[in-house]
C-alpha cells in the first residue's frame, strides 16, 4: 500500500518542484507514521465528566452514543431500488418481512464484481431496525481479518456505528444485523479489516451504497 505510493501520482500535474519537495516531506511522514487507529464508535464522544462533592466521581464509559440517536423520531425514507440481483425474501426466509429494500451496494477496483443488498424490516417500538445483508463476490479473508458493516450518514459519509462484523464464503453469504434510531439519510459501508502493525487495523472500503458513494461532496 503505502510503500507503493508515488507522491507524483497523487497530485495534479501543475505542482512545481518546490511545492513537490515540501509535500514530499509530508508524504514521508505519513508513510512512516502508518495508519491512524480507527476509533470504535463508542469512543467517538468524550467520556462524560462531572464531579460530586468531596470525592471521586465514578462514571460508566460512554459507549452508547447511538442511544441518543435511537431517541430521535424516525420515519423510514429509504429509496427503493427496484428488483435486486438476489431473489429477495422468498418463503424460505420465513420470519423476516422486509419493509424496504433491496438497497444495493457496489464496489470498485478489486471488488467491482462483488455485489450486496440490504433489506430492512419494520422498526420495533424502540426503533430497532432488524435487517439482512446478502453479499457475494467478496474474497475470503485470512486469519484475524473480517468484514465490518457500518451505518453511515448519507450526507457526510461519516461512520455512525458498526452494525456487524462477518466473514464470507463462496456463493451468497447472508448476515442478519440491527441498527437503531434514524433510518432517513443513512447509507452503509463494508470495509475489510485486517491486522496492521502495532495492533492497528487496516480498514479498506470494499462495498458501499449509493448514498455513501455520493458522500464525497460533503
Amino acid at each position: 500500500m503505502t510503500d507503493r505510493l508515488e507522491l507524483r501520482d497523487l497530485l495534479p500535474d501543475d505542482v512545481g518542484p518546490d511545492e513537490l519537495a515540501r509535500l514530499a516531506r509530508v508524504h514521508e511522514l505519513l508513510v512512516s507514521a502508518g495508519a491512524p487507529a480507527e476509533l470504535p464508535p463508542h469512543l467517538e464522544s468524550a467520556p462524560r465528566t462531572g464531579r460530586t462533592g468531596g470525592g471521586a466521581t465514578v462514571l460508566p464509559l460512554d459507549r452508547s452514543r447511538w442511544r441518543t440517536i435511537a431517541m430521535t423520531a424516525a420515519a423510514a425514507a429509504a429509496v427503493l431500488f427496484g428488483v435486486g440481483f438476489f431473489s429477495g425474501w422468498a418463503a424460505k426466509d420465513t420470519g423476516f418481512r422486509a419493509a424496504f429494500g433491496p438497497v444495493p451496494m457496489r464496489g470498485a477496483g478489486a471488488t467491482s464484481k462483488a455485489i450486496a443488498e440490504i433489506w430492512v424490516a419494520p422498526a420495533d417500538k424502540a426503533l430497532n431496525w432488524t435487517s439482512k445483508l446478502k453479499v457475494r463476490g467478496l474474497p475470503e479473508l485470512g486469519k484475524d481479518s473480517y468484514y465490518a458493516l457500518y451505518l453511515t450518514d448519507a450526507k457526510t459519509g461519516r461512520k455512525i456505528l458498526v452494525c456487524t462484523a462477518f466473514s464470507v464464503h463462496a456463493g451468497v453469504t447472508t448476515v442478519t444485523f440491527n441498527f437503531p434510531g434514524e433510518a432517513k439519510d443513512r447509507g452503509w459501508l463494508i470495509v475489510s479489516e485486517t491486522p496492521g502493525p502495532n495492533g492497528t487495523e487496516i480498514a479498506k472500503p470494499v462495498l458501499w451504497t449509493e448514498a455513501e458513494r455520493s458522500s464525497g461532496t460533503a
Binding site: M1, L5, V31, P36, G109, A203, K204, G216
Partner: peptide
C-alpha cells in the same frame, strides 16, 4: 489513498 489501499481513480469512484 495512504491507508485504504485505493488508487486515486478508485478514490474518485468511491466518492463519486
Amino acid at each position: 489513498a495512504y491507508w485504504g489501499g485505493l488508487s486515486q481513480t478508485e478514490v474518485a469512484d468511491f466518492l463519486g
